[in-house]
Design a protein around this nucleic acid. Structure first.
Lengths: 205, 205
DNA sequence: AAATTGATAATTTTGTTAAAAAAGTCAGGA
DNA sequence: TCCTGACTTTTTTAACAAAATTATCAATTT
């Protein structure tokens, strides 16, 4: 027999999927609770039975999305042949993650300031996992004697992540913020890899 | 005898100063032509006699400000003992420049997109001068045999400038965008110097 | 003629309010 | 316990008037 709790979870999961779909395609502000309910052929009131309000539904979706991302990181941690490979993985994985979920994150860009703390906790968790992956890769590389012992790997990784974040396509530096196209994405990726490369050399003996 | 043209230039200069003062303290949108005229005890109509409109007055002020900055760069170019010194100079000079003119640039932050092309031309000019300074420093360092020959110094410099731009104070990564205080500024500077340091090592033999 | 101004026109921003849309609640039914 | 339709409350949008600001110009002074 299937317990009531399980049933609830299944339904919650369906709601999360429908919500994710809407948020991903139309963004937070352009999807209504009615539409989500409509997609599921259920009443809007039922959504409120399962989730306290719209923003917490969004956060729940976000947690799911983040969990998948975190899994893709933890699956790979400590499996890299060298430091460079770890950086490449980080750069590419994060890149894909942001591109696939671009519209979903309009909520961020819209509110920018004064986002609920829960959101920042998730963001921090993701940041920390990314950092951990690289910190671990650095430590391994040090242990292998490939690079100089690093006094504070956490600091170094945070610095490089910030630096990578600053790298943008030259061609869109001004001009209308068109959604970066394929070429731009490739350009950004190439630059980041180059930066990581120089950075790694800077850590060597 | 003082020519009419000279007189005009003198008056234009006075207007630019008054405008700069207002823009710097209250930003573009919060200063009115009436206020600038009032500061100079002249009629608003006279401002329009000397400058076609508000935005072009702003651009004129900006050109003046940029010219000063460019001068401080050209005064120092090719005077550095080593590459690191050049980077430190770039980081500190740009930092001071942005901090002193913070409010003046609210025009940028407000319009963000669709700024007039003239503005971008000035920004580009400044960027190029900063890059030139560092490119020149790199070439000198290569000539001195301190670092490996760099195939494309322009590219490398552009990359590092982007990277430095991405470096922010950890403590304000989320939270309300309060104006970064003294501590934050110091933190950012320290991080940038560290990044430049590692970067330079990455360019060495 | 060049420099200046007060008065005025044109445009943009701000404030107000009503209507529409969306979020959120609840009593009651299966 | 799960679910809904009808309802209330809050937020967004639209329309429009009032106020502020930009911009112009005919007239005046130097």
């Amino acid at each position: 027999m299937i317990s009531a709790i399980d049933q609830q979870d299944v339904k919650k999961e369906r709601i999360l999927e429908a919500a994710h779909h809407r948020f991903l395609h139309y963004g937070y502000s352009k999807t209504t609770m009615n539409e989500i309910a409509g997609d599921l052929s259920m009443s809007k009131a039922l959504l409120y039975y399962y989730f306290p309000d719209k923003s917490q539904l969004y956060v729940a979706v976000m947690k799911k999305v983040a969990a998948e991302y975190l899994k893709s990181l933890s699956d790979k941690i400590n499996t890299f042949a060298d430091l460079k490979e770890a950086f490449i993985f980080q750069i590419d994985t994060q890149h894909d993650f942001i591109v696939t979920n671009y519209n979903f994150f309009d909520f961020f860009r819209l509110n920018e300031q004064n986002l609920p703390d829960v959101i920042w906790e998730i963001v921090d968790e993701v940041h920390n996992s990314e950092a951990q992956l690289l910190v671990s890769a650095i430590k391994t590389e040090v242990a292998r004697g490939k690079i100089k012992p690093v006094a504070n790997p956490e600091e170094i990784v945070a610095l490089l992540l910030d630096a990578l974040h600053g790298v943008r396509a030259k061609s869109v530096s001004h001009k209308k913020t068109m959604f970066p196209n394929k070429e731009h994405l490739a350009e950004i990726r190439a630059k980041r890899l180059l930066l990581a490369d120089i950075f790694i050399k800077g850590l060597m003996y």
